[in-house]
Design a protein around this nucleic acid. Sequence first.
DNA 1: CTCGGCCATTGACACGTTTTAATTCGCCGG
DNA 2: CCGGCGAATTAAAACGTGTCAATGGCCGAG
Lengths: 343, 343
Amino acid sequence: MASSDPGQRDGTIGIKEVALAAGVSPGTVSNVLNRPERVAAATRARVMEVIGELGFVRNGSASSLRAGQGRLVGLMVHDLANPFFTAMAAGVEDLMSERGYAVILCSSATSVEREDRNLRMLAEQGVRGVLVTPVEDGRDRFRLLHERGIGTVMLDHAATRPQQCSVTVDDVAGGHMAVTHLLERGARDIAYVSGPLSIRQCADRRTGALQAIEQAGPPDAALREVEVPDLTPRSGQRAAERLLAELPDAIFCANDLLAMGVLRELLQQGVRVPERVLLMGYDDIEFTTASAVQLTSVRQPTYQLGRIAAELLLDECDDTGGHAHQQILFQPELVVRESTTPA
Amino acid sequence: MASSDPGQRDGTIGIKEVALAAGVSPGTVSNVLNRPERVAAATRARVMEVIGELGFVRNGSASSLRAGQGRLVGLMVHDLANPFFTAMAAGVEDLMSERGYAVILCSSATSVEREDRNLRMLAEQGVRGVLVTPVEDGRDRFRLLHERGIGTVMLDHAATRPQQCSVTVDDVAGGHMAVTHLLERGARDIAYVSGPLSIRQCADRRTGALQAIEQAGPPDAALREVEVPDLTPRSGQRAAERLLAELPDAIFCANDLLAMGVLRELLQQGVRVPERVLLMGYDDIEFTTASAVQLTSVRQPTYQLGRIAAELLLDECDDTGGHAHQQILFQPELVVRESTTPA
DNA sequence: CTCGGCCATTGACACGTTTTAATTCGCCGG
DNA sequence: CCGGCGAATTAAAACGTGTCAATGGCCGAG
């Protein structure tokens, strides 16, 4: 139709070029792509062949615009340098890839402003849904998304409203079992090295720790607290420096990265672990494999967390209405190793 | 259709609703968004205010469709469980976020098929450009993208064509300096524990290692090779098991994860590092902080790699034509620690 | 006072797809 | 022999924004 050559000029090949070449209407090509069952087998085959020959790739923007929804989802985590989050991300990416979805990755860097900015951007991109580990417990920070019908699933964070899905690990239980374990091993003066308590995970683990002391602890048991600004080995090292002045019996760290930093500093200063101080981490990340002292930790099904959350999100989006919102709560698992096992 | 939701307030406010409320035309609103300098300060302010009041968020699909390009870029890495890649990803995400771009994250899982599938999807999404650590040196696997005018920047991989950007670290030099270091410390029988040699990084480091032996090694120096299927601590452990039968003087691992696995196995079997065997890793990831023996490694500016590649990509995309394709080559840096320093 | 020029703004169309209502065609029951 | 029904296909109308030529108003030069 256009000017002259029906040929292979660089003009982008769209659905209508395919239609022309296959001798059908654009609408039929669209049907082949979206509802193959509605088109006769013969024409379907012909159209598919032409698509292959012409190297047609569908324009996602146009598709999303017209259909009102695309094949994009958002994933927002705190920190890409933390193996806990990247393992979750891997789970999410794997499942989404299997289902033909693409994942927009955002890091909030534990900053509320950056989280908001990213959420806005995700809304603009018209994502189908968002998986998010929120920075804070803000009440309706996702109103923007919900107004536009974008589903959200909380990742490693309890749902903020009943009609919302979430996939969580019981951090209170985790903190409880960690400190109970330390008490059983005879510790009385226990230090809790934590990231900002505004981060729910840190706060919950602390709560569990306190409960354990209250319930199972002898009268002289107590929890000292050291708070550092982020969950990195460096911060762990700083925390250990502060503890050196008066060493506790045991140190419970809010995650393994902190524990690694603590361990490093203790060993450098000649403090023996576990003989002098018991040490525990949290997350049971893979990279402590060759640590100087095998680290006792609290394991979470990290990768599975991501996968299941992703599944929930798609279920919520794809389903026409019969979707039951679920709040899934995993129980963590204590993994006892050398760092809490004196000879 | 959704019959349940009572929230009927959903009139989907678009550019024209804003225009109506502000008493201007849709075209002006669009200008406020895209070329603020062309609109008078007064009207601009009024429109912005209305945008805020109405909670307008622009429809990215429509925008991309009409403008022919969106604010999305793709990032494809081998493995999300590898800190090397996630550190790069963090660099990419940070810069893109600063510049107002969103990142679609893909993992190729070192599978060519999955890489191809992801590339196609990225093409469909109409990304502005793609950052990719390719799985193999396929000849023109990015033709699909280039035909559609989508720029690519090679991440930690040399450019495959002159008119392409790349950001790389000299892995041959890295392998060379690693093995030279081991030779200087007196090693003769050196083992190279590597991932698949089809992965360029592994192959290049091996090349450098061989060169070092040839150039600087005494006549009796030799390189034994152990190849494992992936770059994980687990595989490192298996490699070490194989080496136990006849221990080399030194072990050079293709990355730190392998080295951690090797270290673990050696220590478990009572082999002393570095007294009996010198050990080196590669990447200098942060998580070896508290390793049993501080690991000598070859450091790469990982995070910077990602940032700079991202900058290059945006430069290539945004620029009207005066963009000079750059192949940036970083030099790695030897970081000597305990694992190659016998007392 | 008039005219040309300039800037801010406008209006209408185009982007590539999905979707709905309409159309064709073959076939069967009456 | 006819009317009507269903399956397969089509034509055309959106979806929300960006772009560009065209419009209108304002000011200074003549």
